[in-house]
Write a protein that binds this DNA or RNA. Structure first.
Length: 888
DNA sequence: GCGTTCACG
DNA sequence: ACGTACGTGAACGCC
């Protein structure tokens, strides 16, 4: 058997691990406050490597210090690098301990870099007939690739690696691994801080290396080069090139004091590892260890719990519950309108009561408890609990703490529907996740074993109770208590009501439309096949791409990661090339209506009431908006006339009733005017201007009374949208089909005309960089860890989000406040009208015809007075017999 | 389960 | 040299 050697570039992997997890750095600390992200990442890498490569010998090489023979010959070698953060330095000794406990050797050598140790051992191993795997985060080491040595360079994170063999190097660069040294000598290395030859980058360097073979050969034959600037630079920088070649060369004969024989790998020392993981707080690794070594550790990680199983005969025991209880009704399926009930738990630290029999909830002692307005309820997902209990004829009153909702407000990423996962986010570990207890995928099931199920329920209720104080304190710290108490929690009840009410949908209308669409679809389909000359699956972008771009040879406009793009914007550019393009666009439009809106909606009409009951997700979006699922009622077609017809099926649930709808006009731009304080933008709104027209006047420098043609208004509108989304000249140019230069000019003009907006953008990004988050007018928070990202595109995205989130999020805050007040008004005035839908800036109601005049007054009044901004809010209302027929 | 496309604000 | 407007959900093909 060929022996195998594993060589790991310790420093570079530790760096990678540290920065890969930089965003979550705060989560990776042990009980002593030691940062552990790099240790954790190193361990991940190690496991991953050892799973795929079984070494007989293994070594992790480290740099010995800053001074090396390279710094002695070139002062600035690796100069200009930032100081290694303390959070990383403190982890290095622990990484070395991890290496030792894992059964690997580690080594460093004064005056030499880890690279040189690796290069030297790889050479010895090559000579001795070993197969060697080098793992590193540094691409420089690819020069060591050979027939028997593969270099794995981390790609993304620490476990995703790219394997460099001589063939792979050849394929990527067209040169041999050893020639990488020559390439680097010519092009330099900015991270190691040596320059190379002036004006020569990777492309030119590779060309020269291919042509001449090496730096030495190049200078042998320098006269053969034609006269050029490049030749002058080469001649001028010859000394530098030769010196850089030495710097770039990894030694293969460093004076190391170890040999292959010293590197034997005989597997981990499990007892030591268990101790180490405990010290680091690596629970997941502990769990994965051999059970012999963990023992009952797994069980012991969750504090035991006792509970009382409720029956019809012991309900009187509940009398002891006073003041405050935690309650959890288990509905194992996501859709709580239809999910079966698996059981429930109620109680406090004194005693947890539980049962599988939800019928017990209807018995007086329990029902009265839940409906009692003097006993505070602590729950997880208030809205789901309200709906679930409503199905059992129970009204859940006096909800105090909602773990899910509070957790979401503290950090919008903590939005799992799994209580165990959310608890873990807050460092509470005495509860398992549903996935652990119920399994996942097809195997997911509520366990038959009472002990397992009941203790899971009881630990969930306990988790809610134990996290309450801590999360309330954190909300307070963030100034988010009013957001929780006055907006989100009351909103949960309003949303529950809307979902329970549901919206009446006429199935027959949908079916009739469906048959027409089916006919039309068949027609277009045969036209497309005719045009293509064969039958294929039009829904498959792969097959469609083949037909359009290979068979019909249409020009390729845009590519995707996996092939040709066939999206609308690409196809529109081909419309004049072949009739098949328009046919495909029409096919797509109709197929979408058919599958998503006809069949899709028909599937979710409840047979008992002919209504659709969506679920609003209150804890999902990163901005504070709602989202709607099962089905999504926030994206019913409206823009195109064909799609808009779908709305004819949305009808009132009673004879003699109508649909009524009010929407905010330009709410996001008004919010922008408010939070930026921009004088010009505020004046335009205060003067009741058509905002896109007045923007056009300003950015195109027109007279105040100038006529604005449609195209100008369209462009100005795009600029306004662009500002809200975090604009780039490229993006704007794409959208309104102008040159990038023109788009750039529009944006410059905008910032000149609206200097307050410009200042807001700068200030907000600065705030995000300083604090790591941004806020809305109600102190809703969004964290933006990528605001510090090295990657331009990641960082840019975070910057755009930083300025967009306060705008989109504040608009969401406003309509949420309006919804709560609106529901109050409907009840206070004993109106029959029902709030049915929220579509971000619009509220849809159904009401008896005679109440329409009342709503026409009331709804806009409530909506435009929801908050007081520095600019007025404007609301438009419409009504009609169906959602399609709405008119002013 | 992921990628692409397209529906909405 | 890069990659490009914010926030969502559903259907479908493909692996």
């Amino acid at each position: 058997m060929t022996k195998q050697l594993l060589l790991i570039d310790g420093n570079s992997i530790v760096f990678r691990a540290f920065f890969a997890m930089h965003n979550q750095m705060d989560k990776f600390t042990n009980k002593d406050g030691l940062h552990t992200a790099a240790i954790y990442g190193f361990k991940l890498m190690l496991d991953h490597v050892l799973q795929n490569f079984k070494p007989d010998a293994a070594l992790v090489a480290f740099d010995a210090g800053k001074v090396t023979f390279r710094t002695k010959m070139y002062d600035d070698y690796k100069g200009g690098r930032n100081k290694t953060p303390n959070e990383l330095t403190e982890q290095i000794p622990y990484v070395r301990e991890l290496i030792k406990d894992s059964g690997l050797h580690s080594y460093d050598l004064a005056n030499y870099e880890a690279d040189d140790i690796i290069g030297t051992l790889a050479k010895q191993a090559d000579d001795a007939g070993y197969k060697t795997l080098i793992v590193t985060g540094d691409r420089d080491l690819t020069q060591l690739a050979s027939e028997n040595t593969t270099v794995a360079v981390t790609h993304k994170g620490v476990t995703d690696t790219e394997h460099y063999t001589p063939a792979h190097v050849e394929e990527k660069l067209g040169i041999t691994p050893r020639q990488i040294i020559d390439m680097k000598a010519l092009m330099g290395d900015s991270s190691d801080n040596y320059p190379g030859v002036t004006k020569i980058g990777e492309k030119t360097a590779i060309k020269l290396v291919k042509q001449f073979g090496s730096v030495e050969e190049l200078y042998e034959h320098i006269d053969e080069l034609k006269k050029s600037k490049m030749k002058e630079h080469l001649i001028e920088d010859e000394e530098i090139a030769r010196q850089c070649k030495t710097l770039a060369t990894i030694l293969r004969d460093a004076p190391i004091k170890i040999s292959l024989a010293d590197l034997k790998y005989e597997g981990p020392q499990n007892d030591e590892l268990v101790k180490f993981y405990k010290e680091m707080g690596f629970k997941s690794f502990l769990k994965k260890m051999d059970p012999d070594h963990v023992g009952d550790e797994d069980e012991a990680t969750i504090a035991p719990i006792s509970y009382t199983v409720l029956t019809k005969d012991n309900l009187t025991k509940l009398a002891q519950l006073k003041g405050e209880v935690s309650f959890y009704l288990e509905m194992p399926e996501a859709n709580y309108h239809t999910s079966p009930f698996a059981g429930f738990v109620i109680g406090n630290d004194e005693c947890w009561f539980t049962s599988r029999d939800v019928e017990l909830l209807k018995e007086a002692p329990l029902k009265d408890l839940l409906e009692n307005t003097g006993i505070k309820k602590n729950v997880f997902n208030a809205k789901a609990q309200i709906v679930g209990l409503h199905r059992l004829g129970i009204s859940l009153e006096d909800i105090n703490f909602d773990l899910l909702l509070a957790s979401y407000l503290l950090n919008t990423n903590d939005n799992s529907n799994d209580l165990g996962q959310v608890a873990q986010e807050h460092d509470y570990d005495d509860v398992r996740t549903d996935e652990e207890v119920y399994g996942k995928g097809a195997k997911r099931a509520v366990p038959d074993d009472d002990e397992v199920f009941f203790s899971h329920l009881a630990t969930k209720a306990r988790a809610i109770a134990h996290l309450r104080k801590d999360l309330f304190a954190k909300l307070d710290e963030n100034k988010q208590t009013p957001l929780y108490t006055d907006i989100e929690l009351p909103l949960a009840r309003v949303l529950a009501k809307m979902e329970i009410t549901g919206v009446h949908v006429d199935a027959q209308t949908l079916k009739n439309m469906g048959s027409k669409l089916t006919e039309r679809l068949a027609e277009i389909e045969s036209q497309i096949y005719q045009e293509a000359g064969e039958e294929f699956n039009i829904n498959s972008t792969k097959q469609l791409g083949h037909i359009l771009f290979e068979k019909l040879k249409l020009p390729v406009i845009k590519k995707t990661k996996t092939g040709y793009s066939t999206a609308v914007d690409a196809l529109e550019k081909l419309a004049d090339k072949s009739p098949i393009v328009e046919q495909i666009l029409e096919y797509r439009q109709i197929a979408k209506l058919q599958s998503t809106y006809i069949t899709g909606l028909l599937k979710v009409i409840h047979s008992n009431d002919q209504k659709i009951h969506t679920r609003y997700l209150q804890t999902l979006t990163q901005t504070g908006r709602l989202s709607s699922v099962d089905p999504n009622l926030q994206n019913i077609p409206v823009r195109l006339p064909e799609g808009r017809l779908i709305r004819k099926a949305f009808v009132p649930s009673h004879e003699g009733w109508q649909i009524f709808s009010s929407d905010y006009s330009q709410v996001e731009l008004r919010v922008l005017a408010h939070i930026t304080g921009d004088k010009n933008l505020q004046d335009d709104f205060k003067n009741g201007e058509d905002i896109h027209a007045s923007t056009a006047r300003r950015i195109f420098h027109l007279a105040p009374d100038a006529e604005i043609d449609r195209n100008m208004r369209r462009r100005a509108k795009a600029v306004n949208f662009g500002i809200v989304y975090g604009i780039s000249d490229y993006g704007l140019a794409q959208r309104i089909h102008v040159s990038r230069a023109e788009a750039h000019e529009f944006i410059q003009n905008y910032f000149h005309e609206f200097p307050g907006v410009k200042k807001y953008i700068n200030d907000t990004i600065a705030f995000a960089k300083e604090n790591g988050y941004v806020e809305t007018i109600t102190h809703r928070r969004r964290y933006l860890p990528d605001i510090h990202a090295k990657s331009f595109s990641k960082r840019s995205f975070a910057e755009r989000t930083a300025m967009n989130t306060p705008i989109q999020g504040s608009a969401a805050d406003i309509i949420k406040i309006a919804m709560i007040r609106m529901q109050d008004e409907l009840e206070k005035r004993h109106l029959q009208a029902k709030m049915l839908l929220q579509i971000h800036d619009e509220l849809v109601f159904e009401a008896p015809k005679e109440e329409i005049p009342v709503l026409s007054e009331l709804v806009p009044k409530v909506m435009d007075s929801a908050v007081k901004l520095d600019v007025p809010l404007k609301v438009d209302s419409k009504y009609g017999d169906t959602w399609y027929d709405l008119k002013k």
